[in-house]
Design a protein around this nucleic acid. Structure first.
Ligand SMILES: [Mn+2]
Ligand SMILES: [Mn+2]
Ligand SMILES: [Zn+2]
Ligand SMILES: [Zn+2]
Lengths: 138, 138
DNA sequence: ACCTAAATGCGAAAGATTCTCATTTCTATA
DNA sequence: TATAGAAATGAGAATCTTTCGCATTTAGGT
């Protein structure tokens, strides 16, 4: 909810960065590819180079402003880091994405890392299925 | 452990397919990219086109002979489907991969899908961390 | 206002995967 | 066992996403 300032995270407040951040904050779609961001900006008349979109999103990720996901394996999906950590459940028919947090899973993951002798950095959990809407349509 | 026959899964028993399957069965490395498989076959004197490796691995996946993973987001990793379902914990330093099964997590995932109104097809869970070996080295 | 490092935009390049299509190989059937 | 036809292969072109190189522009401290 609290929009962090670019300078706070050590990034110069350039026009492209401000446009991209503003777009992420105001978009009602939470999960977007770099291409999605690029096209959306173009359509709203904001000109930002595609390479810059990629660069800036990566910088935002490093700065903790956005999270990167690999929902399908091919391209990266970004989302503004404005809420708690959460995992995702995705509809394989329509692409819908829902978010969830499960403390049981979180703690089991930590336990597994411990059991295996790993220090845990991060994790990715994706559940794939068919959402209720798509189940009815078929 | 039981090596299924190609014809059993509806695939013609061609030389390239037999070579790839045999390689997967005999390799001591369990998780490999298409490129890995291609190069390993080349080195052992078996000539199989790269495009064929990609095609065959995808066919094997459809047939249930192999599983495909997206460990890092970019390229696909394949493994022979000879054991129970399991998830993975990966070392971000050395690339080591360990496998685990956790019934608690499995059932929580099913519960979450139910709660969200999804019919669950599949899931992917990757834990990233630093393995015990790499922790000591640093 | 000026200077310099940092950032941008463009197109080229990269890496992974798929596609095209001429040629080869299975396999069912005669 | 010979043969026809469908299916599969191999080689390279094409595609897709992402990164790179570099000339030009910009932010921000002096
Ligand atoms: Mn999310
Ligand atoms: Mn495995
Ligand atoms: Zn759906
Ligand atoms: Zn390690």
């Amino acid at each position: 909810m609290e929009s962090k300032d670019l300078k706070q995270v050590g990034l110069k407040a350039t026009i492209p960065r401000l446009k991209i951040l503003k777009f992420l904050e105001e978009s009602d779609v939470r999960h977007m590819s770099a291409e999605d961001v690029y096209k959306a900006l173009l359509e709203s008349g904001e000109e930002v180079g595609l390479a810059t979109v990629y660069r800036v999103l990566t910088q935002f990720e490093s700065a903790g402003l956005v999270a990167r996901h690999h929902f399908e394996g091919d391209h990266s999906i970004f989302e503004l880091n404005d809420s708690e950590h959460h995992d995702h459940i995705l509809c394989v028919k329509c692409g819908r994405v829902d978010e969830f947090v499960d403390e049981v899973i979180e703690s089991r993951q930590a336990a597994i890392a411990r059991e295996k002798g790993y220090s845990m950095d991060d994790h990715a959990l994706y559940i794939f299925g068919v959402c209720s809407d798509c189940q009815q349509k078929k």
